[in-house]
Design a protein around this nucleic acid. Structure first.
Length: 563
DNA sequence: CGGTGAACGTA
DNA sequence: CGTACGTTCACCGA
């Protein structure tokens, strides 16, 4: 993985300088100077780029639209190898050298006494303290380009150690690192490009929910009062209820005979017919979500003058390893989706994976009977046949097995599954058992999933309910996390394969990709998205006899029906 | 002013 | 509701 052509790219503190290490040759200069050298090297040598993190090293290159194909992202590798989200250079260095994270030197504070003068700079090349840690004050001395070569060499040292360790953990882990590294680069491109919107249509959808824009505090407060009034008029004598205070809402509902433990939506839905205030409250909550979170303020802050919605992206969260996005890119209410529209001359190619989690289970577990079911477009059909049950029952059972659900019809349906697919069910049960014991586990691609975040409250064995929660988390994490790896491998393959069409990925949504594509390239982009899935799935699964399917269509608006 | 829980949007 | 995350609000304790 790092045996071929390798180049290391580093950035100095504050974006004032950058450095490039390639073989024995090191060049430093302004970010613009180094960008030109990077682009030329990518063209001639196609190296694997090593950096502390894509965000630190490659953001300016992405802004300058320099395309880099292959990377080893030290931070992403650290997250895979050691779990969690934190992946500073000092922490990555420590882990690579088997130094306990608790022994990390504290970073210098703002205290005047901590400030180092020029005389305190270490000689170039000396970046390790007596304990073997990266010097805690490296942020300061990296302002001096003379130190960048050592900084680059350190990144390469960590990368090589990570690669060596990866081989001992899982034969697939190094491949997962390269895929996740590409995903981190894609995240920078998503931040740069944004999601194309039809601003006028989006504004209209907001107005439909919460009324026209208001001017000034008085008008805004009046609009808010009139929205509240639509609920409060159903409860005479309790008009002073604060609808944003759950305790007061609960009291108000009790007064009209709706006695509920919480005022959550799925609880209240059962009381729709009992009193008209329930329906009014649910409608109020729906609109309030748009007024507060996805309203005019959201539009003004996050949609640029180029009519693109932008937010920060991360390639992997700290738990199971999904991508995350801010500013509503991952949780835009469905009613606003018609506002997401391709710009003139472009269309969207929209592709979503079908039944991805059970198909991933077939790969992860190696259950040949379950793998056979993935040959069907609808895998629940052969599962139902084998169980001798309805499709609906088969689906509930499979989902319950992967999510740890026990309520409703799930419990009974599970028994048949255990008999029909013992290998797949055994894998899930072992994952759950690890979780209940508080032990970490690894996804198919080798990502360490810690269960430590539950340990904050009580250790395993002390609280049966907490142990059960750990079990459900672990059971789901091995599937959700492995599916996230397949998805990112697909996204990275698509990123590379549609580039020459002038197309770009503009949204990643766990099992769905949205591409912005020049109109006349749409059909070709569809073919490449589909062939990318076959390629990525084959590579990721090691050629397992498991079929993955995508529903792919060309649309003008994200909301348009599939096909 | 920072942290926490409720609530709810998406998958 | 089975899991995950991001955002906003009110409340709590400083």
């Amino acid at each position: 993985m790092l045996s071929g052509e390798v180049a290391v790219l580093v950035a100095g503190t504050g974006g004032s300088a950058a450095g490039l290490l390639h073989g024995d040759r090191f060049v430093a200069g302004t970010p613009a100077e180094v960008a030109a050298t990077v682009a030329a090297l990518e063209e001639t040598h196609h190296p694997r780029w090593v950096w502390w993190s894509a965000g630190a090293a490659a953001r300016e290159l992405v802004a300058a639209r320099v395309h880099l194909a292959r990377a080893w992202d030290v931070a992403e590798a650290h997250r895979l190898l050691h779990g969690g989200f934190e992946a500073t250079p000092a922490l990555c260095w420590a882990a690579a050298h088997d130094l306990a994270p608790e022994s990390l030197p504290a970073p210098p504070g703002d205290d005047l006494f901590d400030l180092v003068g020029a005389d305190d700079l270490p000689p170039p090349g000396v970046l390790v303290d007596a304990a073997g840690h990266l010097r805690a004050d490296h942020v300061r001395w990296l302002e001096d380009p003379a130190h960048l070569e050592a900084w680059a060499a350190a990144a390469l040292t960590v990368a090589r150690r990570q690669l060596a360790r990866a081989g001992g953990v899982s034969p697939r882990l190094a491949g997962t690192v390269t895929s996740e590294s590409a995903a981190a680069l894609l995240c920078l491109e998503l931040e740069r490009d944004g999601l194309p919107l039809d601003r006028a249509r989006t504004e209209q959808l907001v107005a439909d929910a919460v009324g026209p824009r208001t001017v000034g505090d008085a008008e805004t407060a009046a609009a808010r009062r009139s929205r509240d009034e639509m609920v409060l008029r159903h409860v005479p004598g309790r008009e002073s209820t604060d609808l944003r205070n759950p305790v007061q809402v609960k009291e108000m509902l009790a007064a009209v005979g709706v006695d509920v433990p919480t005022t959550r939506k799925w609880v209240l839905e059962a009381y729709r017919e009992v009193h008209p205030v329930v329906e009014a409250l649910l409608a109020w909550r729906r609109d309030e979500r748009i007024a507060t979170t996805y309203g005019y303020r959201w539009l003004d802050s996050h949609v640029g003058p180029d009519d693109r919605l932008r937010g920060r992206w991360t390639a992997c969260d700290g738990a199971a390893g999904r991508m995350t996005a801010e500013n509503g890119l991952h949780n835009l209410p469905a009613v606003l989706r018609p506002g997401v529209a391709a710009h003139p001359g472009f269309v969207f190619v929209r592709a979503d994976l079908g039944q991805v989690e059970p198909r991933v289970l077939a790969v992860v577990s190696g259950d040949t009977a379950f793998a056979a079911a993935t040959r069907a477009d609808d895998l629940y059909a052969p599962v139902a046949q084998r169980l001798g049950s309805d499709r609906a029952v088969a689906k509930i059972a499979v989902l319950a097995a992967m999510y740890g659900q026990r309520s409703g019809a799930a419990g009974e349906a599970l028994k048949g599954l255990e008999a029909a697919y013992p290998v797949a069910m055994g894998l899930l049960e072992r994952a759950a058992a690890s979780g209940r014991r508080g032990e970490p586990l690894r996804t198919y691609g080798g990502r360490l999933v810690p269960t430590g975040r539950f340990l904050a409250s009580r250790p395993p064995g002390a609280d049966p309910q907490l142990d059960a929660a750990r079990g459900r988390f672990a059971r789901n994490a091995v599937i959700q996390g492995s599916a996230a790896e397949l998805f990112k491998a697909w996204a990275a393959t698509v990123r590379a394969s549609v580039r020459d069409l002038g197309a770009s990925v503009v949204l990643c949504l766990h099992d769905e990709l949205l591409l912005h594509v020049p109109e006349d390239a749409a059909d070709e982009a569809v073919r490449r998205v589909d062939s990318s899935l076959q390629g990525a799935a084959h590579h990721w699964s090691g050629g397992a006899p498991v079929r993955f399917v995508a529903d792919t269509s060309v649309v003008r608006r994200w909301s348009e029906a599939k096909d």
